[in-house]
Simulated scan of single mutants.
Amino acid sequence: MLVITRKKGESILIGSDIEITVVKLDDGSVKLAIDAPKSVTVLRKELYKEVQEENKSAVILNLDMLKSIKK
């Protein structure tokens, strides 16, 4: 993991086409602006995990349904 210190208004680049800028610093939180191509999906990690769990649940449910139909 790379740890970088940035101040308000400073940015980091990921590759040549994704820029993350520190917009605001508040009590214990940071507001970031992300400039990325539309083809790049940007999600908060907790939302990403939630989607993964929903997908796993859907697969299990579908497998159970298929097993019951096969009987």
Rank of each mutant, 00 (worst) to 15 (best):
L13F: 09
S68Y: 05
S39P: 00
D27I: 03
L43F: 09
I34N: 04
E50L: 12
G28W: 07
K24A: 07
E46C: 04
K70T: 07
D64L: 09
V40C: 10
K56M: 11
E53L: 12
N62I: 07
S68R: 14
D64V: 06
L32E: 03
I69C: 02
Q52M: 14
I18G: 01
Q52P: 02
V59A: 10
L32N: 03
I69N: 08
E19L: 03
I34P: 03
A58R: 13
L25D: 04
A58E: 13
T21G: 02
G28E: 10
S29A: 10
R44D: 11
K38P: 01
E19R: 05
K31S: 13
G28C: 08
L61D: 10
I20L: 02
K45E: 13
L66N: 07
S68V: 03
A58N: 10
V40W: 07
L66W: 00
I14Q: 06
Y48F: 15
P37E: 12
K56V: 07
E19Y: 01
M65D: 12
D64M: 09
E19V: 06
T21N: 04
D26W: 01
N55G: 07
V51L: 15
S39V: 11
E50S: 13
L13H: 06
P37H: 08
S68E: 15
S68T: 11
D27R: 06
I20H: 02
L47D: 14
K38A: 15
A58H: 08
L25E: 08
S57P: 02
N55D: 11
A33N: 08
N62G: 01
V30C: 09
I20S: 02
L13E: 07
V40L: 14
S29R: 07
I60A: 11
S16E: 14
A58D: 12
I69E: 13
P37S: 13
E53R: 10
T21C: 01
K49W: 07
T21M: 04
E46Y: 05
A33H: 07
S39E: 15
S57H: 04
E19I: 01
E46K: 06
T21K: 02
I14D: 03
L61F: 07
R44Y: 02
L43T: 04
N55T: 11
D17W: 00
D27G: 10
S39G: 10
I34F: 06
